[in-house]
Amino acid sequence: MSVPSASSLTPYALRQQIRSGAHQGNTSGQAAGFVQCNLAILPADYANEFLRFCQANPKPCPLIGMAAEPGDYIISDAGEDVDIRTDIPAYQLFEQGQPTTQVNNLLEVWRDDLVTFMLGCSFSFEEALLADGLEIRNITERVNVPMYRTSMPCTPAGRFSGNMVVSMRPMPAAAAIRAIQICSRFPSVHGAPVHLGDPALIGIEDINKPDFGDPVSIRDGELPVFWACGVTPQLAIAKAKPPFCITHSPGCMLITDIPNSKLSVL
């Protein structure tokens, strides 16, 4: 009997696989048709400032939703039986703003003062690009999308500040123009690219050495196309230095029951 691929599973079924440990690793190209979210989980006394940071920087930090109360880990707005503690393939723990440990669930570290934020992810708009016939190189090569620190500053809010992180997908010029048109319809999942072409202009020294994720091949005649990335809050968290917080590990997202079509503005 054949086992269904992760891309064909419903979000609920894939979350159950993640919860049980049957599925691990990045979620790019999986549960086609549904919104994937970056995660930031902070103590309640940092939550209002982080909310203002997201509102001031909607491209890298597009807010999809948040927990109603501190300590809530069942997020019904995200889908059926969504448990934030178990339904992401990998989590990054931070202490005083510094990354410490990656874990596969939060059952042993969850606290009643934690507030969960769900942020839009570029994996959601990849489906629209693929549907239009555009290649997504990290999916073709079956690796995590490459992500880079940049010199582009975010608007600060309270204790949160820092530069933007971007994800990159190489494309021929005509495809890059089409990608801009398509992604402009999805402001809730990073929207249109923030840069294309020379990576040095946004502070990236070596396109073949991403800060997060995996390198992908860039063919002759292709442009690197850069989108604002949901890893950006991790850099802001590092500067704010909360005593404890949690994010997703890069590329390992919360897959919701929200259709991607609900985020399109056209």
Rank of each mutant, 00 (worst) to 15 (best):
C61N: 08
N57I: 07
A32G: 00
L42N: 12
E49C: 00
F34D: 10
Y46R: 13
F50L: 04
E49F: 01
A56L: 13
T27L: 03
L39M: 14
K59S: 06
V35S: 08
A44V: 15
C54T: 13
G33S: 10
L63F: 06
N38W: 06
A47S: 13
Y46H: 14
A32F: 00
G29E: 02
R52N: 13
P60N: 11
A44M: 00
A31G: 15
G29H: 01
N57M: 01
K59F: 07
P58F: 14
K59C: 00
N38S: 10
L39C: 08
A32L: 13
L42A: 06
L42P: 12
T27P: 03
A44I: 06
A40R: 03
P60G: 06
L63S: 04
P58E: 05
D45Y: 06
Q36W: 04
N57K: 02
I41C: 07
F53T: 10
L42M: 14
C61M: 15
A40F: 04
F34Q: 02
F34Y: 15
N48K: 15
F50A: 04
I64K: 10
D45R: 12
L39N: 08
I41A: 09
A31Y: 04
G33W: 05
V35F: 11
A44E: 12
C61D: 06
Q36L: 02
P60D: 13
I41H: 10
L51A: 10
T27E: 01
S28D: 02
P62Q: 06
N26P: 07
N48A: 15
F50V: 08
A31S: 15
P60M: 09
Q36T: 01
G29T: 03
Q36N: 05
N57S: 01
L51S: 09
C61V: 08
Q30A: 02
P43C: 11
Q30W: 02
L39S: 10
N26Q: 05
L63P: 07
F34I: 00
C54Y: 14
V35R: 11
P43M: 07
Q30T: 14
I41Y: 07
K59T: 11
L51P: 00
L51R: 14
N57V: 03
A31N: 08
A44L: 07
S28M: 01
F53Y: 15
G33Q: 09
N38L: 06
Y46L: 08
G33M: 08
F53I: 08
T27G: 03
I64T: 09
S28C: 00
